[in-house]
């Protein structure tokens, strides 16, 4: 059963298309990777779902349906409530995603208290539970700490705890390990997978790293220039991608088994092929 459906979503900055007729679904409890290089529009899809697109971005057409609620058709206020209650974001950079002038505790509990109407005490108990779940020692002390007193890895754990606080049905993780140390990356990835499995939350995992996709996702969507090139199961993808760009991307991914092998870039010819495909699409839709 699919509970997040994106249908034919197109978005523009000025006259330039940044999302081209994007459709994808996420079923309950599924982990879907959104893969592409920078500028492919993968983060924009996450932002479109959460309603945090930059003001310059104009959604021209399409629907985003979360559990039967047509998000783009709702009044902003109602939409915020639906998102706040049913979805959550694990942001990219834990160093900038916590408010520096507020203690950690309220930043975890505020959604529960202000948006979902929990009592302060219940929210506090819940936050302590969650900090324990994300393996933070001395949760009481951490709740009273300011963000600058904690390491990047700790802050990302807090943000993960905060994302799971209201038991959302969908979490969007926007390159949640990119800003972290390599050693910490693995732990955080493992933690996200562990939390996802325990809570049965669907996860839309935005990343440029196919290695990460192979570890955590069940399905993936490959994007280039805001256009979906391939939408498949992870097993099928690693067995043999259908789109030439996906195949080149896979070939360009460094192998953990052979770290000394030289890196192969995506060949020019493949990029040219994808660009031609996008131009043909734009011509067909009159975006030129």
């Amino acid at each position: 059963m699919s509970f997040l459906t994106i249908e034919n979503l197109s978005a523009f900055v000025g006259p330039a298309p940044i999302l081209r007729d994007v459709s994808l679904t996420v079923t309950a409890g599924e982990v879907r990777g959104l893969v592409g290089e920078s500028g492919a529009g993968k983060s924009m899809i996450g932002k479109a779902v959460l309603g945090t697109l930059p003001p310059a971005v104009r959604v021209a057409s399409g629907r985003i349906v979360l559990e039967g609620e047509d998000l783009l058709a709702m009044r902003p206020r109602d939409r915020r409530r639906v998102i706040g209650a049913r979805a959550a974001l694990i942001p990219q950079d834990p160093l900038t995603a916590l408010n520096p002038s507020r203690r950690v505790g309220p930043q975890i509990t505020n959604r529960l208290v202000d948006i979902l109407g929990w009592t302060r005490h219940d929210a506090q108990v819940r936050a302590l539970e969650l900090l324990d779940e994300v393996h933070i020692p001395e949760p009481e002390r951490v709740m009273r700490a300011y963000p600058h007193e904690l390491s990047g890895g700790m802050r990302q754990r807090i943000l993960i705890a905060s994302a799971f606080a209201a038991e959302p049905r969908l979490i969007i993780a926007d390159e949640p390990t990119t800003a972290l140390d390599v050693t910490v990356q693995k732990q955080i990835l493992r933690l996200i997978r562990e939390m996802q499995a325990r809570h049965g939350t669907a996860l839309l995992f935005v990343t440029h790293d196919l290695g990460v996709v192979s570890k955590i996702c069940q399905s993936l969507t490959v994007l280039y220039g805001g256009k979906v090139l391939e939408d498949t199961r992870v097993g099928d993808f690693f067995a043999g991608p259908t789109h030439p760009y996906s195949a080149a991307l896979l070939a360009a991914t460094p192998k953990y088994t052979d770290p000394d092998a030289s890196l192969t870039p995506v060949p020019e010819a493949v990029i040219d092929g994808v660009r031609a495909e996008i131009e043909a699409f734009d011509r067909m839709h009159g975006h030129v």
């Binding site: 309603g51 950079d93 202000d114």
Partner: peptide, 17 residues
């Protein structure tokens, strides 16, 4: 434009808050 403000929006907070 900072991330913690975006994060607060996704929690359901409105512009004034």
């Amino acid at each position: 434009n900072l991330d913690y403000v975006t994060l607060a929006r996704t929690k359901g907070y409105g512009e004034n808050h």
